[in-house]
Structures are given as structure tokens and as C-alpha cells.
Nucleic acid binder design. Structure first.
Lengths: 239, 239
DNA sequence: AACCCGGGCGACCATCGGACGCTGGTGCC
DNA sequence: GGCACCAGCGTCCGATGGTCGCCCGGGTT
């Protein structure tokens, strides 16, 4: 299934047009005629480098090296990490040490409320008032005891939440289908991109506008990968 | 006149309510009863430190030391700096090695056009599309040969342009009045704040919204000092 | 020519948006 | 218990918004 080809990161798999790879329609046919090719060469499209601006800004792109574990003897009082998400059907509670997707989406609602609070506070203080979920909001989340909300997580699943908000029917079907097939969260997450790309096409490829028109999505930055995917598909369209 | 009290920076002078210090109404009365007091103590209000957020972000606020002149032997090909602005009446051409205020405002229009261009380009490339005048726009300005447009300058006079857009009548009167009195640009610039504060009050102190509602001003970040001034006056109101 | 006023804008800084990949939790055997 | 998988999120990085004050242009004496 799709899961086998899905990557840890956001590398994008495109072997055909969007229509032909809608996750719900695809099981085996995706790689027909390519089954003997090495996975790295069969339809995995690396997106263009982001540094495409022509004004002369420089990008060094050195491979960053992550810091090893924190020094021993540090107190830190570090929270245990959250349980991983699993693909659940709408309304289904995750069993065992897992979290379900309804909970994931609720995190986005919580962020929206947190933003509202941050906005109220900053207005009251005459400071500039964020219209998006910014670092400040994540800081506020930590401060007010919602330490389980953090930036990398929330940014990671924005487009999944977007699908949930824009087409609950399709989002629910996708969840049921991926759960049934036993796909993991990474595969489900990848699959959420394509219905959005189709919607973007139906909106003149204006993904930004599509999300901005929705009350709940307006506050989230458009994920880079989603924007790039739309751009890529649009350029295929005009071939 | 007002000019004598005005500071190089944006320190804010408030000896009374906004009503009492509307620049057009004020010549000498401003400091009545305080003329013997040291200027630093007479109504020069230092605004609250920006690091007022309670979430625990740290601000070191070390005095930055500016780099001395560039190394000798550097080519650089540096453009000579622009002629300073002087206060001119509407339609009046600046004489000598000076630039007039109509020219200043035209620079803002040019930035608006530049932004439109940047938006067109970034849409075409599927990159994220700025809705404000960002660093990218200033970079684009340099790139396309408008080297006379730069960030510190444009940010410095935003509120003057705002007054010009929101109440051309009042803006023109202010220019005529300050020119007649022989005030310098700094004094005129300071004076531009107060009519805006009054307008903000009439709009429920929503200066952000006031500027955002205007087609031409929407693309400019609200100047910090203007937001702070509004905040300050609002809190005086409720005393 | 010498001086000084005042303002243009180069350069700096904290913080931002964005993302990588290490670490360790988790289920399976 | 041991192992392999995989995803949470600590941490990093280039670039941004915002501003200070050095430097020098320009008018005056």
C-alpha cells in the first residue's frame, strides 16, 4: 500500500496526476509497471530547493548537527513525551498508550483558544496583536500548563487539520480507510495532502486563500510542503 | 516651538491630553508652568519597556555598539546618501539639495507597487506571498534599481504617510503650518502622531484596524510608537 | 573655511518561522 | 526481555522586524 513508499519526512511521492493517486482510490495500481524499480527512483519527487529567490539572498544549507542528550545531572524536570498518535476512526478512542486523531484535532482547537487569549492580552497591553499561531502562542501554552502543545507537533499536522475542517466527510473516509488497512500515522498524514491539492485546483490553485477563507484555518501558516505540492501540480497541469 | 522639545528618537512628549497638544493649536502654551524644569523631567514620557510579556521571555537589552566606518580599500561603489527631507507645502517642490514631502509620500506609493510585483513573482513560483512590506520588498527595491528606498527610512515616516492617506486635509494643514513656522522635519514628523491618536480614539482605540481598513496603509506595519502612544492615551482616558 | 545641526541609512539584535533527526517509547516476538 | 520501528519534540538555523546612533551632507557664519 501507500504506506510502504511513504517517507519519514515530507518528500513527496507523485507518480501520476493528483486524480490518479487519490489515496482512497489507490492500493496497488500506483506503481504498476514500476515494481522492479528501486523505490528511490520511482516517483519520489524531491521538491525544488526553497532558495529560489533571484534577488541574491544566500543560503548555505549546512547540515545541522543536533545536540546529543542533555548533560547528566541536569534537573530539567522534563515531562515524559506524549503518546504517539494512531489512526483512529471518527469518535474512536485510542486504546493503550496511544492518542487518537480526534484528540489531535482538539489540540488545534485548543491552540485557537490560546491565540484568542494571547490576542486579548496583547490588545490590553497595547502590544502588537498576532493574527496567526506564533511562537508567542506556544510559549503561552507552556506557561498556562498546556506543555503537551508544541510547535513542531502542531506544524506537522496542520494540513491534516485543514482537511478535517474543509471536508469532514472526506477526512473521515480517509481515516476509516487508513485504519482499516492498518496504515501508520505517517502514511495517513501523507495521504491528507492530496485531497487538499484537488480542492486547491478547484479554487484556482489559491491554497492560501482556501485556508484563509475558513474561520479556523485562517490562524495557521500554510505548510510549505502543501504550497509546494500545489505549485508542482499546477505546473503539470499546463504541460 | 514644538521643535525645541522634539527628540532625535521617538521619545514621546505628553504634557497634557491629546486634545491639548494638537500641534496646530500649540505654540508656547505646551510647557506653561514647567518652563523652569529640566527638559528630561518635563513631560517627556519614556514608554514602557517592550519586554513586558509575562511568559518569561528574556531580554538582555545590551547597548548595541555600531560598527565604525567600513574598512578602507573596500570598493563598495556606495551610492551617495539621499538629500534630507524638508517640510514642504502640498505641491511645493523642494529647493536646493533637499527633498519635499510629496516626494516622501511618493516613495510609499512606489513601495506599494514593488510589493505588488513581489507578490506576483512569489505566487508564480509557489512561494509564500507577503501581504506587508517586508525585507524582501526592500531587497527587491534595491535589485530593481530603486536603491534610494530603504527600510529604516520607510519605517521612520510610516505614520506621516498614514495621516496623509487618512486625512489629507489635516495632513496638508499640518505641513503648511509647520513650514510657515520654520519647523524642521523631525518636529513635523512628531506632530503627525497626534491627529492619528485622535482618530484612533474615535475608532475605539483600534489603530491597527484603522490602518488596515485603508487600501494603501494595509501593507504597512503599524509603527510601534504610534501603537504605544494610543495605548498611553487610552489609559489616561480611563483615569 | 570652520562649525554644528539634524537626519539618512548601515548595521546590529532579539526573535521569528521553519525543519531536522536524536532519542526513547511502544508493540511484537 | 530484547529488538526494531517510528514519531515526538528539543534544538538548531537563516531570515525577519525593528531600531540605534555613526557619520556626513548641508546651511550658516
Amino acid at each position: 500500500g501507500v504506506a510502504k513508499e511513504s517517507q519519514r519526512d515530507d518528500s513527496i511521492i507523485l507518480t501520476g496526476t493528483v486524480n490518479s493517486i487519490l489515496p482512497l482510490n489507490v492500493k496497488e495500481p500506483l506503481l504498476i509497471g514500476q515494481n522492479s524499480v528501486h523505490p528511490a527512483e520511482c516517483g519520489l519527487v524531491s521538491l525544488p530547493e526553497p532558495g529560489s529567490e533571484s534577488e541574491g539572498r544566500k543560503l548555505s544549507k549546512k547540515k545541522q548537527k543536533r545536540r546529543r542528550t542533555k548533560e547528566a545531572g541536569e534537573d530539567g524536570e522534563d515531562r515524559p513525551r506524549e503518546h504517539p498518535f494512531i489512526v483512529t476512526e471518527p469518535g474512536e478512542l485510542a486504546r493503550g498508550k496511544k492518542n487518537g486523531l480526534d484528540y489531535l484535532f482538539d489540540l488545534y482547537e485548543q491552540c485557537g483558544k490560546l491565540l484568542l487569549e494571547v490576542q486579548r492580552i496583547s490588545k490590553e497591553r497595547g502590544e502588537k496583536c498576532p493574527i496567526k499561531v506564533t511562537n508567542q502562542v506556544f510559549r503561552h501554552a507552556k506557561y498556562t500548563g498546556s506543555g503537551y502543545i508544541n510547535k513542531p507537533k502542531m506544524r506537522h499536522y496542520v494540513h491534516c487539520y485543514a482537511l478535517h475542517c474543509l471536508d469532514i466527510e472526506q477526512s473521515n473516509n480517509l481515516r476509516r480507510s487508513f485504519k482499516e488497512r492498518g496504515e501508520n500515522v505517517g502514511a495517513w498524514r501523507q495521504a491528507c495532502y492530496y485531497p487538499l491539492v484537488v480542492m486547491a485546483r478547484e479554487n484556482g490553485w489559491d491554497i492560501e486563500g482556501l485556508l484563509n477563507r475558513n474561520e479556523k484555518l485562517r490562524i495557521w501558516y500554510v505548510p510549505t510542503k502543501l504550497r509546494q505540492l500545489c505549485h508542482l501540480e499546477r505546473s503539470k497541469d499546463s504541460d
